[in-house]
């Protein structure tokens, strides 16, 4: 059974993420109010298969057009309010990703994009990958998807900016309610495979 919760326990398989200053949450809420109608996004590619980059690109094209919400993709972390991390952090890309994090002015919102960004996706336990953005930087919003559709990207930005509230909630199923029903009970026996 593949039920191993944490894969390899030894410390050397983990990286230690950047630690947040204490009052940063208060600063972030203040920031959110300011950038509600004009958010500058900077894309940090930590070694994904670049399907996520193309979908972010597609989100800015005429059909989905993020600029109508004031969301603009800028070309330097200096101007950025939101850092958009894609890709499961590969070893070679860890140093540049941390440099980008320090270059952006505080307070900043960090969004982790795509299955690789959220939790390492299909490469989560590989030798050359640290697996997920939250291994190196504190993340505020997760946008799952492989790759997330441009509509999901826009929804993610809306949740990040606090325009929409998130729909997905963690769920605890109660399976003991009743027995599992058999399927196709009314089919006569001999033709049922």
């Amino acid at each position: 059974m593949k039920g191993i919760k944490q894969l390899v326990g030894t410390a050397h398989t983990q990286t230690v993420p950047v630690v947040l200053p204490p009052n940063s949450q208060k600063l972030k809420d203040a920031l959110l109010k300011e950038i509600r109608r004009s958010a500058y996004v900077y894309r940090v590619d930590c070694g994904g298969c670049n399907a996520c980059e193309i979908e972010i690109f597609a989100a800015t094209t005429p059909i989905f057009d993020t600029e109508r919400f004031g969301i603009k993709i800028v070309a330097s972390p200096r101007h950025a309010d939101i850092l958009l991390y894609t890709g499961s952090v590969t070893r070679a890309m860890r140093a540049p990703a941390l440099r980008a994090y320090e270059a952006a002015p505080d307070p900043k919102i960090v969004i982790s994009y795509g299955a690789c960004g959220c939790d390492g996706g299909i490469f989560h336990d590989l030798y050359c990958v640290w697996g997920g953005t939250d291994k190196i930087v504190p993340v505020d919003v997760y946008i799952p998807g492989c790759p997330p559709t441009p509509a999901a990207t826009i929804y993610g930005f809306a949740v990040a900016l606090g325009l929409l509230d998130q729909k997905l909630k963690s769920k605890q199923h109660q399976p003991e309610a009743q027995k599992a029903q058999l399927k196709h009970t009314n089919i006569p026996l001999d033709i049922k495979v």
Binding site: E34, D65, G70, D81
Partner: peptide
């Protein structure tokens, strides 16, 4: 494409002034 409102630059500059 629909594009931002004409006042978008005001919002941008207002936000940047406080960053």
């Amino acid at each position: 494409r629909q594009g931002p409102g004409v006042l978008q630059d005001y919002r941008d500059i207002a936000k940047l002034l406080r960053r």
